[in-house]
Design a protein around this nucleic acid. Structure first.
Lengths: 238, 238
DNA sequence: AAAGCGAATTTGTATATACAAGTTATAATT
DNA sequence: AATTATAACTTGTATATACAAATTCGCTTT
């Protein structure tokens, strides 16, 4: 059975993005929605709460759900999104160059980053991302081999996430990301078209599965002029 | 009346942060929690969903709520947090220098950023943030004067957000933030201790109230070596 | 000892009801 | 005409029930 509140959520997202309620900039009331979707109010409220979380609407007590139109279209990178999904959504002419694909043993550094034991096997994948002809992103991925037994050149050049989720049926669930600006390493200078830029933006991620097991560590290194990150944040009252 | 699920959420956060369930790294089951807090299961579930949203737990069907221990203690900057709140939480020796405080008229640029009409009055606040003696952040705030009639030197040197929320009773609700890396302007070089760094990290924010009215635009310009942003993200399935 | 089955436990979804609290529009009063 | 009070509408909170789906654990069987 498909989850009702999720399909309602997706339907509402589609309608908002196509400006279905542009005039009023308001969603129908919860009671109206229950009738439109022939369901209960609580189910509607679950869908609306998802919309609010993702920055599509703002709920105002006594009034209704106001649609937030802050051009949500330019670079929505909250959540965990793969390079292929991103470039596809933005219609960018992108290309992936596989630079290294190997099984290595965990050294001191990786044991802490992947929380595994010394010398345990790890997939190392090093890829350069080319956008309109320029090498601007260097992605270094490390996968715990326990969760990812096999990897091929073809998979890495296409979409690893697609393979992990649809073939291996891994449930990628949440991530901790850290953004910093660092000096380029020799490797950065070799593999990227840095064009004299003296910094790179570094995003270090630890990615977890459904059952809270840590299975991936990634360093994504960007040329600063090609980096942009957009976030929707809600104020948390203490 | 105080919201039950919120007080339960806050109590659980406190217990998680003090490692109350360290051995099992699991929360009690929902039914146990209903008895502990003498409430209904739905109310417990509301609190648990907040914990999951904020990255404290991962719920696993059939098992329970696993506590996520990814050292949540180093830099939790998701949500909208003011400089004063941040430095206070991290025990940093920080100092604010008010560089400019004036009412200006909206020019072409600000009309689009604050979505107001040309020549309407705007508060401009320009502040330099000093951390352990170094000027590393330049904050340029613009407030729609309609929502913020008065501002003083004292307020700007203390905490504007504190004033807005507690004195003016404004309900700051959500924000859209954009992170980029840019070349320093002449103003950056004048006001900050850039120490030869040839880039600044720029965070542009549009901040909204409860009723979805846009009331603030901010540019926060950071020396790259002193910038770090940590995010907790959940994978969104399409 | 190992495998398989089933019951108990635990979270997920859907629905229903009652009342509280904020907003808006209408009607009544001054 | 302006103000005030009332009613209608809308979202927020709390509670209850029923069943689905995944995991765990103990028991039985092989």
């Amino acid at each position: 059975m498909q989850k009702k509140y999720l399909t309602i959520y997706q339907d509402l997202v589609k309608k908002i993005e196509v400006n279905h309620w542009a005039e009023s900039s308001m969603l129908p009331s919860e009671y109206e929605l229950t009738e439109m979707y022939a369901t209960s109010r609580e189910t509607i409220r679950k869908a609306l709460n998802l919309l609010a979380q993702d920055g599509y609407i703002q709920k105002v007590r006594g009034k209704g759900s106001v649609i937030i139109d802050v051009n949500k279209f330019d670079f929505p990178v909250s959540g965990i999104v793969s390079f292929k999904e991103l470039t596809g959504k933005l219609n960018l002419k992108a290309n992936t160059i596989l630079h290294e694909l190997a099984i290595i043993e965990a050294d001191q550094d990786l044991t802490s980053k992947l929380k595994i034991r010394l010398h345990e096997p790890i997939w190392k994948v090093c890829r350069v991302r080319e956008i309109s002809g320029e090498k601007v992103i260097l992605d270094k991925d490390y996968f715990n081999k326990k969760f990812v037994p096999a990897l091929t050149k073809e998979i890495c050049e296409d979409s690893i996430y697609n393979y992990l989720e649809n073939e291996l049926k891994l449930n990628i669930s949440f991530a901790r990301k850290e953004f910093t600006v660092e000096d380029p390493t020799r490797e950065d200078r070799q593999l990227l078209d840095l064009e004299g830029y003296s910094n790179v933006v570094v995003i270090k991620s630890m990615v977890f599965l459904d059952d809270t097991s840590l299975f991936q560590y990634t360093e994504s290194r960007h040329r600063p002029d090609k980096f942009k990150f957009v976030d929707f944040a809600r104020r948390v009252k203490s």
